[in-house]
């Protein structure tokens, strides 16, 4: 049966194209991810990584192709709280007058009533999420007073509180301290065991080898996609980064 076939995949993107007012940002991109898989999204700045995320969350409309999330449309994935997006630190206004608790509570908004009054279960979910990212001492700290790593953990907690089965993370390791990096990688292993699907963009080649089962190399379209051990080759990386060798980009050790 076809529905069962769909359910095997958490994310199915088929030949998707995105253009902003005629400028093509992404074309003919494909991606299939199953529960428990971690996939690295690698590409230059402007290669379409964020656009790919935006298409999956429904923040931008695709002009061609098809996206299925758990076999259903992006629209119903939004309604079901299936996807959580963890933004880049640069992507948010850190001076916004809002506390850690309130940011994490935003993860529950989608499943609350119209006035967004937290129920007991919402409060519990937020508490648990904050506990998991080790920010108990900062419940009412304004996000502007947090370090880069703490801020990253706040948004990770929001995704946890949302109880999403798919996590999209934009540069989760950029600008974070070692403690946060360790905590995030531990969480990734937990998420994987919980059967969550993770798609993360990163500049750091070491992280790709460390966590990612799969890797998607993009440069406006898919350059290569598959098991990290097979696809993450110097040749593919060079093609992805427009002919620059990985040694030059990341140092010879990587």
């Amino acid at each position: 049966m076809e529905t069962i076939n769909y359910q095997n995949f958490r994310i199915e993107a088929e030949n998707i194209c995105v253009d902003y007012n005629g400028k093509v940002a992404l074309y003919d991109a494909n991606l299939r991810l199953k529960p428990g898989q971690i996939c690295g999204l690698v590409g230059m700045n402007g290669a379409g990584k964020t656009t790919f995320f935006n298409a999956l969350t429904g923040f931008v409309n695709i002009s061609k192709g098809k996206i299925r999330i758990n076999g259903e449309s992006v629209r119903s994935a939004q309604k079901d709280q299936t996807i959580a997006y963890v933004p880049q630190n640069e992507g948010i206004d850190s001076q916004f007058p809002i506390s850690v608790w309130d940011v994490v509570m935003m993860g529950r908004y989608g499943s609350m009533n119209i006035f967004r009054c937290p129920r007991e279960s919402d409060v519990q979910a937020v508490k648990d999420a904050i506990e998991r990212v080790d920010l108990n001492d900062h419940l009412s700290t304004p996000i502007g007073n947090l370090s880069g790593g703490q801020r990253k953990r706040t948004f990770l907690a929001r995704a946890i509180a949302q109880r999403a089965s798919i996590l999209l993370l934009d540069e989760p390791f950029s600008g974070v301290d070692i403690r946060t990096e360790k905590l995030i990688s531990e969480l990734f292993i937990q998420f994987k065991n919980e059967g969550k699907t993770i798609l993360l963009s990163t500049h750091d080649m070491i992280h790709v080898r460390e966590f990612c089962d799969l890797v998607l190399l993009i440069n406006k379209t898919v350059v290569a996609y598959g098991e990290t051990s097979e696809v993450f080759t110097p040749e593919n990386i060079t093609t992805t980064f427009g002919g620059i060798s990985p040694d030059f980009l990341f140092g010879p050790e990587s």
């Binding site: 429904g58 996807i83 933004p87 935003m106």
Partner: peptide, 11 residues
């Protein structure tokens, strides 16, 4: 604060 998150959770 974060329109992208709003959209992602179906708001």
């Amino acid at each position: 604060f974060d329109p992208r998150h709003a959209k992602t959770v179906g708001i």
